[in-house]
Design a protein around this nucleic acid. Sequence first.
DNA 1: AACCCTTTTTGATAAATGTCACAGTTTGCA
DNA 2: TGCAAACTGTGACATTTATCAAAAAGGGTT
Lengths: 192, 192
Amino acid sequence: MNNLLLNHIARHVTLDLSEQELLFNILILKKLNKNQYLLKEGDICKYDYFVIQGGVRQYEVDKNGKELIIHFGFEDWWISDKASLWNETPSIYNIEALEDTSVLQVKKEHLEKLFSLSPKLEHYFHLVLQQTFAIWQNKILFLQKPAEERYRLFREMYGHIEQRISQQYVASYLGITRETLSRLRSQMFKKR
Amino acid sequence: MNNLLLNHIARHVTLDLSEQELLFNILILKKLNKNQYLLKEGDICKYDYFVIQGGVRQYEVDKNGKELIIHFGFEDWWISDKASLWNETPSIYNIEALEDTSVLQVKKEHLEKLFSLSPKLEHYFHLVLQQTFAIWQNKILFLQKPAEERYRLFREMYGHIEQRISQQYVASYLGITRETLSRLRSQMFKKR
DNA sequence: AACCCTTTTTGATAAATGTCACAGTTTGCA
DNA sequence: TGCAAACTGTGACATTTATCAAAAAGGGTT
């Protein structure tokens, strides 16, 4: 069950047994039902989460009450509100399970202690953040492109999980309305 | 001249003298004239840069030849294409000086060696990346808002340097045309 | 001051996307 | 199996923003 995380780590650094132990001592398995929350707007994010099964969406509710999804987290992803986690400020995000989901959770303070005990593990988290950063950087470019291209790019990146996400959530992630996505799709699939 | 960097570091970690020396041995001061490039599209980004004077813009050229600015870097900022730097892939970005600019440059390999020698310095870079990440995360939300609100938010964040950036670049950063920004401004300043 | 070059503003029009209302479709569950 | 609730599709229309063209305003240099 934790093999997913061990493999993920092994792709970046080689831990010795004592380090593995250090890490696994602070991990807690958490199970969520569909529509349960990992984080609610206004709370301070206290944990980093690694998704081992299922999926979540991370979204903001804007002042008109509209939900803007900024990120999905599926198997093999670390997810949290980094800004809230590291600065201990109230989060503007909600993180909600899209399906029944299992995550490994690790508390911020434990993570900090971990980093001071094992530079290699800090290195791992640093590498993961670099990767995550690159993905988010892409999303910025992506949002400046026309709707159809965004949807194409989305399918390139997330095609393998598209059917696990309802269309309205895909639309929200793309930054368009569900109507626009619906029209886009019927056009695209008519063409060929 | 390097005090800016020392202060920046001191806000995050406390280095001992040997670590300071390690770091300063691998820093190179680089001066750029206005319109010179730190990075060109297609090249692999080999350095991380810390701006000590002046400012740069980081932009993509899309397939229609339009420039999309995704980030500015002014004094006290680390800038580079992280994706290209860490994955050694060709960059899609250009980084160009907006004015005469001085940066401290550090080579990727030196940085990696540095991290293995000094966990504290890796910790510093990790913290900086966390901060940078939070800012970019904000930009994603920001791009989903209407043009006027984007401009307001921009002024909140970058008000102190707005007059150092030409309006067309501000518009490009906001993801709108210069005409739209111009109209936006005349409206906003008429109102009050 | 006169010139050139770049940037900004303005107007007319077009294109993309949003909004609202409602119909059709799917899904889960009693 | 059938019903209610949630999701998706479609049409008419509104709004936002882009595009193109040209005029006005700035800035730097001689």
